[in-house]
Amino acid sequence: MRALILGAGAVGGYYGGRLVEAGADVTFFVREARARLLAEHGLRIESALGGARLDVRTACDRQALAPFDLVILSCKAYDLDDALETIAGAVGPQTGVLSLLNGLVHLDRIAARFPRATVFGGVARISATLGGDGIVRHFGVLNRIDFGARDGGADARLEALRDFFARTPVDARLSAEIEQELWDKFVFLATLAGITTLMRASVGTVLATPAGETLILRLLAECEDIARAEGHAPAPEKFADFRAELTRPGSPLKASMLRDMERGGPTEGEHILGDMLARAQRAGVAAPVLEIAATNVRAYEASRASAG
């Protein structure tokens, strides 16, 4: 199986590097500067589960791409349109596209752009970063990835992906219920992003205020109601996990969306909060805290746009 990974950053670089370790036929589509760095130093991973320095194959010219068996997307949602144009030459009728983006709305956009390809759902659970020195640094030991066909059916490409990961430290799971996995992460992330961007603070800091826990749980309940209206409410034990994680005193947890705002960059606000709110409105589900959180990020994006 020939796989193309768009980018060699924190997520794509880590999971792609582990696939290379296992002997998979992987090509990374990267910018020329990143390609030069990879050619000179290799793909470097630092992790408590084992570091690596890997010689990898790269591509930089989107016009020269030919169809692959599998294309893996791990970009930010605000880069999706450019990403889809970048990989267009790599996607043929027999290609599978595995998305590791947060949320759900991107799956329909990918399917609309490549109607003859097969779009798979994926959820990456990892804390990693790409350093200025080009090293992918993995924090902690969590490095789970779930993927599957949206209809729950079997697919030889996903089975091959699972088998390659089985030779690595990655906790890879081929799921027959990937839609529910995507919804579970969507509910948790919309709550986390909504409350931490609205308050410009970590979960622990919000909890230290008199009404902090009440607001977090109201937002979590709203997102759960929306998921239930769409037929994908989290299981009770999953919801209990979310509640525990979002009400842990002193927690430093904050959404990457807040970090994007803190550095003045673009956010996935519309992709996560905007889409969740749109689903609430279509279903007639009241979501006042979510509406305020989405408006907050929309106002931030409008200010960025007016400032050029």
Score class of each variant (00 low, 15 high):
Lys238Arg: 01
Thr58His: 08
Ala235Arg: 02
Ala128Tyr: 14
Gly13Pro: 05
Phe114Met: 13
Ala293Lys: 00
Phe239Gln: 10
Arg259Tyr: 13
Leu54Pro: 15
Gly284Gln: 00
Thr197Leu: 10
Thr209Tyr: 02
Leu100Phe: 09
Thr205Gln: 12
Ala294His: 06
Leu37Cys: 14
Arg57Tyr: 06
Ala64Cys: 12
Phe147His: 02
Ala88Trp: 00
Arg53Gln: 13
Gly152Asp: 06
Leu65Thr: 07
Ala211Trp: 03
Gly204Tyr: 13
Glu46Val: 01
Met1Leu: 15
Ser175Ala: 15
Thr58Arg: 02
Ile216Thr: 11
Thr247Asn: 03
Ala305Pro: 08
Asp69His: 12
Phe164Ser: 02
Pro236Ala: 07
Leu253Ala: 14
Thr129Lys: 10
Ala307Gln: 10
Gly23Met: 15
Ile135Tyr: 07
Val206Met: 09
Leu19Cys: 08
Gly7Ala: 05
Asp184Phe: 07
Ile145Gly: 15
Arg218Asn: 09
Glu270Cys: 03
Arg200Phe: 04
Arg304Ile: 10
Gly284Glu: 06
Arg44Ile: 11
Ala77His: 01
Ala302Cys: 09
Glu213Trp: 04
Phe114Ile: 13
Phe29Gln: 00
Asp155Ala: 05
Arg200Trp: 14
Gly17His: 01
Leu37Ala: 12
Val141Phe: 12
Ala66Asp: 10
Phe68Asn: 05
Leu219Val: 05
Leu219Pro: 00
Ala22Glu: 09
Gly16Lys: 00
Arg44Trp: 12
Ala208Lys: 10
Lys254Gly: 03
Gly250Phe: 14
Thr214Tyr: 09
Phe28Asn: 04
Trp183Tyr: 10
Ala208Thr: 07
Gln63Tyr: 13
Arg53Val: 14
Ala235His: 01
Ser99His: 01
Leu207Ile: 15
Ile72Trp: 13
Ala39Arg: 02
Leu84Asn: 04
Gly152Thr: 07
Gly51Pro: 09
Gly122Asp: 04
Arg173Asn: 13
Trp183Thr: 07
Leu80Ala: 10
Met257Tyr: 03
Arg243Tyr: 03
Ala166Arg: 10
Ala211Ile: 08
Ile272Phe: 12
Gly134Ser: 12
Arg62Asn: 07
Lys254Ile: 01
Arg125Pro: 11
Arg259Asp: 14
Gln281Asn: 01
Phe29Pro: 00
Leu6Phe: 15
Gln281Lys: 04
Ala39Met: 04
Ala307Thr: 11
Arg57Phe: 12
Phe239Asn: 15
Leu6Ala: 08
Leu49Trp: 01
Gly50Met: 01
Val30His: 08
Leu142Gln: 15
Gly13Ile: 03
Leu158Phe: 09
Cys75Glu: 04
Ala255Leu: 08
Val297Pro: 01
Thr267Val: 03
Leu277Gly: 02
Glu32Ser: 08
Ala48Gly: 09
Leu142Ser: 14
Val203Lys: 05
Gly42Asp: 01
Arg109Met: 05
Gln281Cys: 00
Arg218Ser: 11
Leu49Gln: 06
Ala176Cys: 13
Val56Met: 13
Arg57Ser: 08
Arg228Ala: 10
Ser202Trp: 09
Leu290Glu: 07
Thr129Gly: 15
Pro169Ala: 03
Gly121Glu: 02
Leu182Ile: 13
Leu219Lys: 00
Pro249Gln: 06
Ala52Met: 05
Gly122Ile: 04
Gly140Glu: 04
Val97Leu: 09
Leu219Ile: 08
Ser251His: 15
Met261Thr: 09
Pro67Lys: 03
Ala22Cys: 13
Lys185Val: 12
Met261His: 05
Asp275Ser: 11
Val26Gly: 05
Ile178Met: 12
Ser306Pro: 11
Arg125Cys: 14
Phe28His: 02
